[in-house]
Computed example of a mutant assay.
Amino acid sequence: MIRKGEPSFELLSRMARREAMSLTLIPDLEVRVDSPRPRILFDTRECPWCEAGMPGTRAPLREVASAAGAAGLGGSSPELSVLHCEELTARSLLPLSLIRTVEGAARPRLSTRASFWADFIGSAPLSHDDVLRGLETLDSRESWLDDLLPAFHSGHAAWTQEIQEPSRVLPASTRITHPGGVDGVLASRQSLHFLTPHMDGALVGRLNGIYLSARMAAVRDALKPPAHCAFSL
């Protein structure tokens, strides 16, 4: 049983608050054109759990393109590594849309939590210690958002890193890409998981429950006036 005050509970709560802060950012409002320039590139990869390898990732925004075909797009657009079978919400990509890469800096390259977890843990059975060790590493790989939050709240954030090591992770929950239809959409919504929708078992079920409850509470607190920056506009 994981109780409030324990290190693992505090770790999950911190990650949940980080995602909540990301979800409640204000998007960059601009005039739309017929052929907008892609702001985010997707690098889709095979899933080690379901072996999905055919193109199937749903782009949640119009201004999304494949990294494989980005040769002529310059080096400034953030690139996100995702599993072929996972689906992200448009709002979860808000931090990437607010990044502005300065001249001379490397292209921001990040991965989803599921993509990170596939590399760090793989598809082998996990012990309690394995999961906690992975979460501690994941927390550190997401901490870049904590540093950029003040800039995000003011508008854009400058990306200045010339070398990006270790890799960064986007703090966002994920779910299975739905095949279409009412049943498919429902199944996708029910598969929401803070790490990867393929994980199951009693331990990860408890962790997911704690995380999603903490995320809901953090979003609710962030949107209370006058806490949210939108109320100062």
Rank of each mutant, 00 (worst) to 15 (best):
A16N: 00
R17W: 14
R18P: 02
R18G: 03
R18D: 00
R18F: 04
R18Y: 01
R18N: 12
R18E: 03
A20C: 10
S22G: 12
S22K: 02
S22C: 13
L23I: 07
L23D: 02
L23M: 15
T24Q: 07
T24N: 09
T24K: 03
L25W: 01
L25P: 03
I26P: 01
I26R: 12
I26V: 12
P27A: 06
P27S: 03
P27E: 06
D28S: 14
D28G: 10
L29F: 11
L29T: 12
L29E: 14
L29R: 11
E30K: 08
E30D: 09
V31A: 12
V31C: 01
V31L: 11
V31W: 04
R32V: 01
R32T: 08
R32K: 08
R32H: 01
R32C: 03
D34V: 11
D34M: 07
S35A: 07
S35I: 09
S35N: 12
P36K: 05
P36Y: 01
R37A: 14
P38R: 03
P38Q: 09
R39C: 01
R39S: 04
I40D: 00
I40E: 02
I40K: 02
I40L: 10
I40W: 01
L41S: 05
L41R: 05
L41Y: 05
F42E: 01
D43H: 08
D43P: 00
D43K: 15
D43F: 07
D43A: 14
T44A: 13
T44N: 06
T44C: 08
E46I: 11
E46R: 15
C47L: 12
C47V: 08
P48C: 11
P48T: 08
W49A: 10
W49P: 00
C50M: 08
C50L: 08
C50V: 04
C50H: 04
E51L: 14
A52G: 15
A52D: 09
A52Q: 07
A52I: 03
A52C: 13
M54K: 14
M54Y: 11
P55Q: 05
